[in-house]
Design a protein around this nucleic acid. Structure first.
Lengths: 243, 243
DNA sequence: CGCAACATTGAAGCTTCTCAATTAAGGTGG
DNA sequence: CCACCTTAATTGAGAAGCTTCAATGTTGCG
């Protein structure tokens, strides 16, 4: 988006507890991986940092790198010929980027207000997967989790009214924050209303109106633009599946 | 749906060329698998046949079986509390059912006008995956392919107008039929208009109107209710990404 | 042949989108 | 640190598209 943004790539210490098969969400594999396996992993990892709005890669680029997010948030999106944009997902610490069967990335990945990642060569990971079945198995687990997320997204897009979509979105962000060890309730929204709109298949004005409406109905309190406090989680959950 | 439908489960010969890691779409693994590996696979497979509308399993059932479709079509759907239904996908010969990280199925799988499948115990497949890295690898490939399909579905739901959605749907069915070795052009639609509507997040009347409109505009010809001939694939493709 | 499920078509209503104006927030340079 | 400027967010009014309700036509199965 911001073409003049410099690539602030910088090496920093490899933190196995945050990389690939050791995501914060699924610590079980950490104990299972032996020390020499972890060191093999760290040898092929390269850590980088991206500034706000900066792209990890663009749609169509040769897909020879995969990523594991260690901090911040990343927005995955596809752009149609006429300029419309679909946000495929928001990824956070512990999430993996790179499940694709095509030689070129089918989406653009951009840091939302900054992100830190571990990058791996695709060939390196493939090779490591052949050497260490545990790595391949962990990749399958993460792909399966991605499928579940995508299917929830599908149901939200297909069956939800605008208010239902926004409610579901807030609850999802809250749940994800808790899963990675953060606070669940004052929900932090690193993305813009337009990002949310493109994720939910709505106009950004509609998203804004829904926030206002949910606040007027007493279900949420909008502290600042980027911080929403859930006042009535139950009512919000009802909203997100019934209206 | 039809509770009185009898389970017409029946054993038939194990056809490795149609099962699991040897889907019609991805024959490369077939050569890679050794004969004794194939025999291990066949030992844990059980083939079954389902009649029109019959359920392979329901949402919430204990998920101890996975499936590979060998013939026909299967509809995967989730139902919301208030009865609305989202069709997550239509699966055909060669497709795999069962990528889920939860102990219970998050969707219902039903045969659309009949289907044949190979079923595998989840534990058996997991065990085989540990023994044969190739199997685990093939599972990862199939999961990756599922992710790509889900993401296309997301973009269609989020950004498409009704006509775009229907156009994309027809082209997708055509492409999928070609991929599994069938005819691409007179597209065969085993599912009802309501099934399509629940897949596309539309009312079934809207789907019907879109078919009529596309026919009036000369892009398709509706031979019978379940057979659509694509007359102008290029215009249809333009529709599906621009409108 | 007749019934039930599926599909088409029409008209009215409602949700969401688009266009437009205003307000708030964030970042930069003086 | 403040003023300014740019970007993001809110709010309103009108238009468009989709849904709903209702009636009719079609298909396929017992």
């Amino acid at each position: 988006m911001n073409k003049s943004a410099m690539t602030t790539a910088a090496s920093f210490a490899f933190d196995a507890s945050r990389c690939l098969i050791c995501s914060a969400r699924n610590l079980n594999m950490c104990g299972a991986l032996e020390q020499d396996e972890l060191s093999k992993l760290s040898k092929i990892a390269r850590c980088e940092s991206f500034g706000s709005g900066e792209a990890l890669f663009h749609e169509g680029d040769t897909a020879n790198t995969v990523y594991n997010i260690t901090d911040g948030a990343v927005r995955l999106s596809s752009t149609l010929k006429d300029g419309r944009r679909q946000v495929i997902g928001f990824l956070f610490s512990g999430d993996f980027i790179g499940f694709s069967d095509r030689p070129n990335y089918p989406w653009t990945a951009e840091a939302v207000r900054g992100a830190k990642v571990c990058r791996f060569g695709r060939n390196d990971i493939a090779k490591l997967g052949r050497e260490l079945p545990k790595v391949e198995h962990r990749l399958l687990e993460m792909a399966t989790s991605d499928i579940a997320s995508a299917q929830e997204h599908i149901t939200m897009l297909g069956q939800g009214s605008a208010a239902e979509k926004v409610s579901s979105f807030l609850l999802m962000l809250s749940r994800k924050a808790a899963q990675r060890g953060g606070v669940a309730n004052p929900v932090h929204l690193p993305m813009t209303r337009e990002d949310i709109a493109d994720y939910l298949g709505l106009a950004f004005e509609t998203v804004s109106r829904c926030f206002t409406r949910l606040e007027n109905e007493g279900l949420i309190a909008i502290g600042s633009i980027r911080v929403v406090r859930i006042k009535d989680a139950e009512a919000l959950a009802d909203y997100s599946e019934n209206e």
